[in-house]
Computed example of a mutant assay.
Amino acid sequence: MSKSMWQGVIPALTTPFAADGEVDHAFLAKHAKWQIEAGCIGVVPLGSLGESATLSFDEKVAIVRTLVKALGDTAPVIPGIGSLSTDEAVRLAKACEAEGARGLMVLPPYAYSTDWKEMSAHFRAIATATKLPILLYNNPIAYKTDFTAAQIAELANDLPQIEAIKESSGDIRRLADIQALIGDRLVLMTGIDDAIVEGLAMGVTGWIAGQVNAFPHESVALFERARDGGYDAVKDLYSWFLPLLRLDTVPKFVQLIKLTQQCVDWGDERVRAPRLVVEGAERDAALKVIEDAIKSRPEL
């Protein structure tokens, strides 16, 4: 697999739920196709935004199956591999490979944050269980486990199937630290919506994006213009987009991005408990951001 698989805009897909609480596979397929038609280069289901921790093993495999069937050869399906146990994560990686996934985004285990020895063993067990190229996901804000630049370099040097790093620590300096240790060995990606232009300036060439679920054309335009022309080329578009992008970096980002989808008629805000849809003043504030953005939506 070429490293080009990681270079562009890749939606962290939300998981759509029907009124009965089951996964809405028909909408999932339609939504993924829309993202690719808008210029995205692949999809990442089963991540934090995909409410992966609330999905059963079988639901996860079924989601990958639906997406592989929907997208065929047009774009890779790159599921997130996260679990409470290493054994289950290994089984999920193998199952996703068998369903036709073309890469994996590997997360630290849910709920258990520990030392480097255990995190390294967990990661290596998953990586060596599959032939698929791997995106290492570092998000200490969400998972309380922080892969340092030196640890990322160690894994990259030992495991050739690691092709990219989704660096979401929120510390833009980390990107320079990684490059100082291993040069361009890994494709640098970010998973923080409101740091994409800054990330591109520091060598990022891929974006696992959130609000792309509702605004794929604007997301692709933002990425490509900033990549090719820097901040000056994208200042107005970024200023318009930033209030929406900041909804991706708060605890209820799943609810807020799904609400955004609902407002643009590309999804429903239904979430799976313990999440609940936002209400009251919190909802009013979010709707104001979303509705203002829709009213002032720029011509691309």
Rank of each mutant, 00 (worst) to 15 (best):
residue 12 A to L: 07
residue 246 R to D: 10
residue 156 A to F: 14
residue 294 I to P: 05
residue 252 K to W: 00
residue 37 E to N: 11
residue 179 Q to D: 08
residue 40 C to H: 04
residue 258 K to W: 03
residue 40 C to M: 04
residue 99 E to I: 06
residue 156 A to W: 11
residue 65 R to Q: 13
residue 239 S to I: 04
residue 240 W to D: 13
residue 244 L to P: 08
residue 108 P to G: 03
residue 192 I to V: 12
residue 73 D to T: 08
residue 30 K to M: 05
residue 48 S to Y: 02
residue 170 G to I: 10
residue 60 K to Q: 11
residue 194 D to A: 15
residue 150 A to I: 05
residue 111 A to R: 14
residue 109 P to N: 13
residue 42 G to S: 10
residue 77 V to A: 07
residue 5 M to G: 00
residue 226 A to L: 02
residue 10 I to P: 00
residue 22 E to G: 13
residue 61 V to E: 00
residue 85 S to G: 05
residue 127 A to L: 12
residue 278 V to A: 14
residue 126 I to Y: 14
residue 271 V to M: 04
residue 163 E to F: 12
residue 147 F to C: 06
residue 86 T to L: 12
residue 90 V to M: 11
residue 177 D to N: 13
residue 30 K to I: 08
residue 106 V to M: 13
residue 250 V to F: 02
residue 198 E to L: 13
residue 119 M to R: 01
residue 137 Y to A: 03
residue 67 L to R: 14
residue 180 A to S: 11
residue 227 R to F: 01
residue 239 S to A: 15
residue 284 D to N: 09
residue 44 V to S: 05
residue 280 G to V: 03
residue 202 M to P: 01
residue 158 D to N: 03
residue 253 F to W: 00
residue 68 V to G: 06
residue 216 P to N: 10
residue 65 R to A: 02
residue 55 L to E: 03
residue 186 L to W: 08
residue 234 V to K: 12
residue 144 K to W: 07
residue 248 D to C: 14
residue 127 A to P: 09
residue 282 E to L: 09
residue 107 L to R: 00
residue 107 L to G: 00
residue 110 Y to P: 07
residue 60 K to E: 02
residue 260 T to L: 15
residue 56 S to P: 03
residue 79 P to L: 06
residue 131 K to A: 09
residue 188 L to W: 11
residue 172 I to V: 15
residue 109 P to Y: 14
residue 42 G to M: 07
residue 268 D to Y: 04
residue 242 L to M: 11
residue 245 L to Y: 03
residue 19 A to T: 12
residue 3 K to R: 15
residue 292 D to V: 01
residue 274 P to K: 02
residue 128 T to Q: 10
residue 15 T to K: 07
residue 222 L to W: 09
residue 160 P to V: 00
residue 29 A to R: 11
residue 17 F to Q: 02
residue 150 A to W: 06
residue 135 L to F: 12
residue 105 M to E: 02
residue 1 M to D: 01
residue 174 R to P: 02
residue 239 S to C: 05
residue 278 V to N: 04
residue 75 A to F: 04
residue 133 P to R: 01
residue 162 I to T: 06
residue 161 Q to S: 14
residue 112 Y to V: 02
residue 93 A to Y: 15
residue 118 E to I: 04
residue 121 A to F: 01
residue 224 E to I: 01
residue 83 S to W: 10
residue 28 L to N: 10
residue 53 A to G: 01
residue 239 S to G: 06
residue 170 G to T: 06
residue 256 L to T: 09
residue 287 L to P: 05
residue 211 Q to D: 05
residue 281 A to C: 00
residue 15 T to D: 04
residue 96 C to T: 13
residue 91 R to Y: 08
residue 300 L to W: 10
